[in-house]
């Protein structure tokens, strides 16, 4: 039988994602040890996990190098690649927001400067509102940009809002919620149908069960 290849976004999402696979019976002891390896195989269960940078998960899945991927909706929207998005994993939940210095107001005849790690998300958001903007792509510490006058606002993901507040910014627009998703290569979805369907159903069952827990 062929291996099922799963791309996990390095970091917290990989941990949460692996937990889910473990619950489904796809454990991989190698992955639980501290190591610098990037590829982990469970020969019995014919499953192979690979650890990649979050923003690379979509292309691994689109190209079929991985059959499945676990990645945040933020990365999915930003990368805009072609695959099936089959399951909301309901972890890694946060929101896309626009934040600015306290007291900031849009001036309607002025092009505003937007700093972000997500240029596509920001561009599409402002395009849909019919606003002209200059996008400044940064790779980290986006909160800094308005403070030093690099940009007027920032577009970023916000979980608790603590970082935003501590840097003297405030959220001025709530864009949309995001969470981790299970994505599937379009061809794998068909040719490894049985295995993948079982995983999706398994995840749905786990989700339902934990919903019940919350109510209790």
């Amino acid at each position: 039988m062929e291996y099922l290849n799963v791309a996990l976004a390095k970091g917290r999402l990989a941990k949460e994602g692996y937990k889910l696979f473990k619950k489904l019976g796809y454990e991989c002891s190698e992955l639980e040890e501290k190591s610098r390896k990037l590829i982990f195989t469970n020969e019995d269960k014919k499953i192979r996990f690979i650890l990649v940078k979050a923003s690379d998960v979509p292309i691994y899945v689109e190209k079929g190098a991985s059959d499945l991927g676990m990645v945040g909706k933020d990365t999915i929207i930003e990368e805009n690649r072609s695959f099936y998005e089959v399951c909301d994993l309901e972890f890694g939940e946060c929101r896309f927001c626009v934040a600015a210095l306290k007291g900031f107001k849009y001036e309607y005849n002025k092009k505003i400067k937007v700093a972000t790690k997500y240029p596509n998300v920001a561009k599409n958001y402002y395009l849909s509102k019919g606003k002209q903007v200059d996008i400044i792509k940064l790779n980290g510490s986006v909160e800094l940009a308005p403070l030093v006058g690099l940009s007027d606002v920032i577009v970023d993901i916000v979980q608790t809002g603590k970082t935003i507040k501590e840097n003297g910014l405030e959220i001025i627009e709530d864009m949309f919620p995001i969470s981790a998703r299970l994505i599937v290569n379009k061809v794998s979805f068909k040719v490894k149908n049985e295995k993948i369907r079982k995983i999706i159903e398994g995840i749905e069952t786990i989700k339902e069960a934990s919903d019940g827990d919350n109510k209790l």
């Binding site: 072609s82 695959f83 099936y84 998005e85 089959v86 399951c87 909301d88 998703r181 599937v184 979805f189």
Partner: peptide, 13 residues
């Protein structure tokens, strides 16, 4: 919009 979501098997959205 519905068509695209179905075509892409985007069960979630």
């Amino acid at each position: 919009k519905i068509r695209v979501l179905i075509e892409n098997k985007n069960f979630v959205e």
